[in-house]
């Protein structure tokens, strides 16, 4: 009897995204060169002004997309980063749906009736790319990646783990981390993660991202209730606008507001219109906010805490084991 291939017919699950430093660089250069050549050709050969403007805009946008894709291909693997940097890492724990959540310029949903423009996405809702640079002062900033991603997102360096043993891997990472950035929500995974963090981590090492109560009061209330059932000291019921909480050694929370806006008012007004069309670098240059200053207090607090040599050694062994 002919033996069938057991893998035939089963869907192959991609474990990690496409990563290639050389390939990414090649794509960036090709995008820049290609966009420049096509733009020059359009300007030279197209006589109709309308088509020329449309063509140039399309080419520039395609070039920017190519550069962004190249940059994402060149993003470092989380495991490599942990091996390279001996400091205890900063672990970012969040529900995977936060990676996909976007900020829109209107309410999202199907519409019926009169011709009303649908809401357009203005960008990713997550703030990990912005807080990442400040948190890397503590240690490598890593997060568990969503299985099946083609390209790693900007922000924390992604660690791709098997779906079967991700809990044990996350538990080991938490136990050996220098700091924890947790974004709790009403999902079983983040609930168990928060429970584990509350039991095993020094509260001074925790940065808890919460929905801003001024903008998402119901989301804040949901997180407050969730945290209230797990933390020794509940989050305040009403507080000033904030994006996160840091804690003292007795779990007393202190609100933190990110991104004090230093920009001139006209730039703030321009952001929703042109922000989505720019890449991350240009967005940061034009619309970047003072994230560093907001996180300074947390970074200082964590850096003053002692790191046991034993912890670092155990963690190095673990990383070696995972890499093998």
């Amino acid at each position: 009897m002919k033996q069938g291939n057991p893998e035939k017919g089963t869907r192959k699950v991609r474990r990690g995204p496409i990563r290639s430093r050389a390939g990414g660089l090649a794509l960036i250069l090709a995008s820049l060169l290609g966009a420049s050549i096509v733009t020059a050709l359009i300007v030279d050969f197209v006589s109709d002004g309308r088509f020329m403007i449309l063509g140039v805009c399309f080419t520039v946008l395609a070039g920017i997309r190519g550069v962004d894709t190249g940059r994402r291909m060149r993003l470092r693997d989380g495991w490599e980063e942990l091996q390279r940097d001996p400091r205890p890492p900063v672990i970012f724990l969040r529900p995977f749906r936060e990676d996909r959540r976007t900020i829109s310029n209107g309410p999202i949903g199907p519409q019926k009736g009169a011709d009303v423009p649908a809401a357009a996405a203005e960008g990713r809702a997550t703030i990990e790319p912005q807080i990442g640079s400040a948190l890397r002062a503590i240690g490598p900033f890593v997060a568990v990646g969503q299985p099946g991603e083609w390209l790693a997102p900007f922000g924390a360096d992604r660690l791709y783990v098997d779906e079967d043993d991700w809990r044990s891997t996350v538990a080991l990472l938490i136990e050996n981390s220098g700091a924890i950035v947790i974004q709790p929500d009403a999902t079983p995974s983040t609930y168990s993660e928060l429970m584990f963090v509350a039991r095993h981590v020094d509260p001074q090492r925790i940065l808890m991202l919460v929905p801003n109560p001024a903008l998402r009061p119901l989301g804040f209330e949901r997180v407050r209730r969730l945290a209230g059932s797990l933390l020794p000291v509940p989050l305040p019921q009403s507080c000033t606008p904030c994006d996160a909480f840091i804690f003292d050694r007795d779990w007393n929370p202190r609100p933190l507001l990110f991104g004090r806006d230093w920009r001139p008012a006209f730039l703030s007004r321009l952001e929703p219109s042109i922000g989505p069309f720019l890449n991350l670098t240009l967005n940061w240059l034009l619309f970047g906010r003072d994230w560093q200053a907001s996180l300074d207090e947390f970074v200082r607090q964590v850096r003053h805490l002692p790191v046991s040599r034993e912890q670092s050694d155990a963690f190095s062994t673990f990383i070696q084991f995972v890499r093998c």
Binding site: R101, P107, I108, A125, P211, R216, P217, L218, G219, E221
Partner: peptide, 18 residues
Amino acid sequence: SETLKESWNSDRADLILY
């Protein structure tokens, strides 16, 4: 308002419950 828009987009189940 921006608050209602964000609550609708991100916390819809809670908004409906409210």
